[in-house]
Simulated scan of single mutants.
Amino acid sequence: MSALDDLNDGPADRAVQALRSCNAAPRFAAAVVAGRPYPDVDALVARADEVARGLPWAEVELALAGHPRIGERAEGSSPEAEASRREQHAVGGADDATRAALAEGNRAYEEHFDRVFLVRASGRSPVEILAELRRRLGNDEETERAEVTAQLAEITALRVRGLVS
């Protein structure tokens, strides 16, 4: 039996628990589980992306609580912490100057927006992440909320694909 079959056919509470490791927003997992069964992984990932992009801001903020700062190691052994460490792996190889710039950028972002900077780190170099952080510091609140939601959806889709692949 495949991981997708397990998600489709298993108890709803177990599927919700598995999906919460991909996105901690309370509505996310319930909405994705409500769409079962999914014919294939791509359909599941598409639904997860759609749900994540449609979350109200209050739910996005709850999901952000589970994400560490870029460049900081996620603590614990939860599936979400393990995913974060994998996704930020490249940042660990950054040179000292880039690490210092990321730390300073994180501080500036948090002062400006009063939340952690969220970016899909997977597939990006530390320099690309730093450039994205600096670019987004120029956003207004509405624009940044849209970018945060989009980044959360990208991260969620990657994690859901990993969950069932």
Rank of each mutant, 00 (worst) to 15 (best):
E72Y: 02
E87P: 12
R69K: 15
R85S: 02
A65C: 03
E72G: 11
A83C: 10
L64I: 08
A94W: 04
V91K: 10
E75C: 06
A94S: 07
G71I: 01
R69P: 13
R85F: 11
R73D: 00
A81G: 15
R69L: 09
S84R: 00
E72S: 14
E87S: 11
A65P: 05
A74D: 06
P79F: 05
H89E: 15
A74E: 12
L64N: 04
D95H: 09
R69Q: 15
A90E: 01
R69E: 15
P79W: 01
A94G: 07
A90H: 07
R73W: 02
G66T: 04
R69C: 08
A74P: 14
P68W: 02
S78C: 12
P68M: 05
H89V: 04
S78W: 13
S84P: 01
A81T: 12
L64C: 01
G71K: 03
E82T: 08
D96E: 08
Q88E: 13
E72I: 12
R86T: 07
H89T: 09
E82V: 02
G66Y: 00
G66H: 02
A97G: 11
P68L: 05
P79S: 08
A81M: 09
D95P: 14
P79E: 00
E75D: 10
R86D: 07
G71H: 00
S84F: 01
V91W: 02
S77E: 15
G71L: 07
A81E: 13
P79Y: 01
V91A: 08
R69V: 06
A83R: 09
S78H: 08
E80H: 11
S84D: 13
L64Y: 08
A97K: 00
S84K: 01
V91H: 01
V91I: 10
R85I: 09
G76V: 14
A65R: 02
Q88H: 13
E87M: 09
R85G: 11
D95Q: 08
A81S: 13
A94N: 07
A90V: 00
